[in-house]
Design a protein around this nucleic acid. Structure first.
Lengths: 350, 350
DNA sequence: CTGAAAGCGCTAACAG
DNA sequence: CTGTTAGCGCTTTCAG
């Protein structure tokens, strides 16, 4: 019975369809469909046979076809302002892991630098009808965007920072900064500068703000107020950490005995520059960061650690649970952080 | 009542279909299809009207439906062994940029660590019928995988290292290592150690091998042969750079005056550890890397630079051109590299 | 437990 | 220029 050989000829297109499998197994496409998806109403014998046939025919369902039929794409979108910064690629790693483990695909959208492309890409082509859920990495969303998303009504979560009216998962940035500050204060520091992040791009601006507040208020409780010229802006990169240090040491006047940096990358930049300028860490200057970047251990940097991989993973898990039907699975969650004391902080010498 | 009669109410699904647009604009779906895709046979007036209607109805074509109809998904798969290592996230950035710019989606598959998941994920669910083309980031493929891919017959390219029988784009690893070695030799070094990468995972093993050959042969030309105990293995991470340094300095015997590291991450680890152990760089020891990692400038690391963003972008461009019909657009290409001399290398003191 | 048939939303000839 | 008409491959009632 050579009934299958006709249309499966490789006339340029490739692709074993469900019909080919059905024909080869002597059953209907409906049964094949049930069998390959592990659905109930198929006898063990039939299922086995179908699976075997499908196996050596190399059958794989067309995602477009099943997407059309079911209305679900089995892919979730990941929107990232950057993909080359520590928090982001770590989070993506977690998201990817969870997604593929549960049979979902990850569609990545990197806004890296491209300002204009954003509006267009975001609400349109992307979100709409291409993905079943959206995970946004630590960036702010405009009111309009949030409304769009809610209207479209797909599960949504922000990883890495709170956004008004949206469920999110991330550390308590206020507490993280406060803990770092307390560590410094506990060591005896009162003259501490702040190198904080204030990215001009799409980054979530709530995160830096919270970190600043945690710092300022904790300092205030210790009876210390930072002079404004010790309030330095950076953009979370190593280079801005270097520049930050130079800004502090470049001008005359009293120097701080410690610097709190809003990210390890900046802290590392500051450390490197201090060393280069002959300022010893921690003897002359203590430096503490937030993140626990890959390089921090090697640098001996004291920091407040967080785990973006886990955050990404857990955020994804909530999204997928929601998609699986458990209504209310996506909820704002606080991820843990903890201080790691290494060699970049010590009591002030003066 | 009217509430339940509309088809667009369907069980919570949202979605303006092409038919809705056609009806609202008083034309056929075929015309709408042409209009929204910017295809020829539509009068300016009709097109404008359709676009307007589609606009305020918020119409976006279902990717599943058009995918089914055209046989193309407009997404390309990106297979990465890691996503948290410099070369990889940089390359992904380039790929993403090019892809979205040309209206394609990026489907990310990270193999990070998961050994078992590989086979399953790779040939099956993934590649097949989900993507129009595949871009593989610097990892080795088994013969079987290559054959699978060729049978499926979608455009394929490897970024970051040569793979037998596959088109690829990347620097000339042999030459890069040779250039680094020449720099050291030119400085007067003869006693140089090699900290090379030999990842046990899915990484492309050709890259480390080529770098080793470039080093060894260049050294040989200068009449120098490295003692085997100076041949250290690492896995491209900072930590393995630290361990590499310790392996070298931990045992008695003569020390090298320079180390060539197969990646900047390892070089940075080695530098940091040297400093910690009181070995001055470059006075006591010169260190050179390959990559030009973000942190390298701040570290003052001499290195052989490459640009993964550009490589990813160019690889993607070739893939997309191929998809666009220009047969033979995907071709093995050599990307440029160049030496950047900073402060971590100097003539040997002894 | 299994099959027949009606779509899912869009595209692609082919007519008009 | 525009409409008609078939599908694309899979899922999903609804009968049997």
């Amino acid at each position: 019975m050579a009934r299958t050989t006709e249309r499966s000829q490789r006339g340029g297109h490739n692709g074993v369809s469900i019909e080919d499998v059905a024909a080869a197994a002597g059953v209907s496409t409906a049964t094949v469909s049930r069998a390959v998806r592990g659905l109930p109403r198929v006898s063990p014998a039939t299922r086995e046979k179908i699976l075997e046939v499908a196996g050596n025919l190399g059958y794989v369902a067309s995602s477009s076809a099943s997407g059309l039929a079911t209305g679900r794409t089995r892919t979730v979108g990941v929107l990232a302002p950057y993909v080359d910064r520590w928090f982001f690629f770590k989070a993506i790693e977690g998201v990817d892991r969870e997604l593929h483990q549960r049979g979902y695909n990850l569609s990545l959208f990197n806004l890296g630098g491209q300002r204009g492309a954003r509006e267009r890409l975001f609400s349109k082509t992307m979100v709409y009808k291409q993905i079943d859920a959206l995970l946004v990495l630590c960036m702010s969303l405009t009111h309009e965007e949030i409304e769009d998303l809610q209207r479209i009504d797909i599960p949504l979560i922000i990883v890495g920072g709170p956004v008004e009216d949206c469920p999110s998962i991330g550390i308590d940035d206020y507490a993280a900064a406060a803990d770092a500050t307390s560590h410094l204060i506990g060591l005896g520091h009162r003259k501490v500068a702040l190198l904080h992040g204030q990215d001009d791009s799409d980054l979530n601006f709530t995160v830096p703000r919270l970190r600043v507040e945690g710092f300022v208020e904790t300092m205030a409780k210790a009876g210390s107020i930072m002079p404004p010229e010790w309030d330095i802006f950076g953009n979370f990169t190593v280079r801005s950490g270097q520049e930050g240090f130079d800004a502090l040491w470049g001008k005359p006047g009293p120097k701080p005995t410690a610097i709190l940096c809003a990210s390890d990358e900046m802290a590392i930049g500051a450390m490197l520059q201090a060393r280069r300028r002959g300022v010893r860490v921690p003897e002359d200057l203590s430096i503490i960061g937030i993140d626990n970047h890959e390089f921090s251990e090697a640098m001996g940097l004291t920091t407040v650690a967080q785990d973006p991989v886990e955050q990404g993973q857990q955020g994804t898990r909530m999204l997928l649970d929601e998609l699986a039907g458990s209504h209310g699975a996506v909820q704002t969650t606080v991820a843990p952080h903890h201080l790691i004391v290494r060699e970049s902080t010590a009591p002030p010498s003066s």
